[in-house]
Computed example of a mutant assay.
Amino acid sequence: MARPNLDLIAALRRTARKIEKGSPYQWGHMGSCNCGNLAQELTRLTKAEIHAHALANGRGDWNEQLNDYCPTSGLPMDLLIGEMMEAGLDPDDLKQLERLSDVRILQRLPPEKRYLRHNFRDDVVLYISEWANMLEEQLLAPIKLPHFEWSEQTVLA
């Protein structure tokens, strides 16, 4: 499960905004798919660099890359995935992002919006945006603000 933090939440929001505004999106391309777009934000690599890293490993799609992920291999794609893990993600987060399948996120959506398609721009934007909202709520949940009693005297003072 993703570790809520400001940098990850901001990267998710930037990713959703970029996809929504028309940045390159192609589900079959390792650098411009769901995970690829988020990887661009977290690693500052280009879509071409991400795609080249994936091809160099020769393992296939993101799911296969994540199944074979080895943090000590030194392979470019494993280093990239490692950087994403350092940002607060785990392999399951990325597998679910690629398929838009995290039930915790889907349950937060209106019932008519819960059947998302992984190769549709609007569905990806909705999923990533809701994920950011969920992580933000988790991050803020332990913060308790003091309760103030308000009276007319407080307002007039």
Rank of each mutant, 00 (worst) to 15 (best):
A48G: 14
I105P: 02
L156E: 15
D123M: 05
A141R: 15
G58H: 05
C35R: 04
H147D: 10
I81M: 05
W62M: 04
E149G: 03
A16R: 04
L145G: 11
Y127W: 13
E41W: 03
P91R: 08
D68Q: 11
D93C: 09
I128P: 02
E83G: 15
F120M: 06
L66A: 08
S73G: 03
K95R: 14
G36N: 05
W150I: 15
Y115V: 01
M84V: 00
E130N: 13
R3G: 01
R59K: 13
L109D: 02
E152I: 05
Q65I: 04
G60W: 04
T15F: 08
R117M: 11
H118V: 00
D68C: 06
S23I: 07
E86G: 00
E130L: 05
W131Q: 04
W131M: 09
S151A: 13
L135G: 03
Q138V: 01
K18F: 09
K144C: 06
D92F: 00
Y115A: 04
R3C: 01
W150Q: 14
H51N: 15
M1G: 11
L66I: 03
Q96W: 10
L45C: 14
E137A: 13
L94W: 01
S32W: 03
R44E: 12
Q153A: 15
V125S: 10
Q26S: 13
L94A: 06
D93G: 04
K95F: 04
S101K: 10
L55G: 06
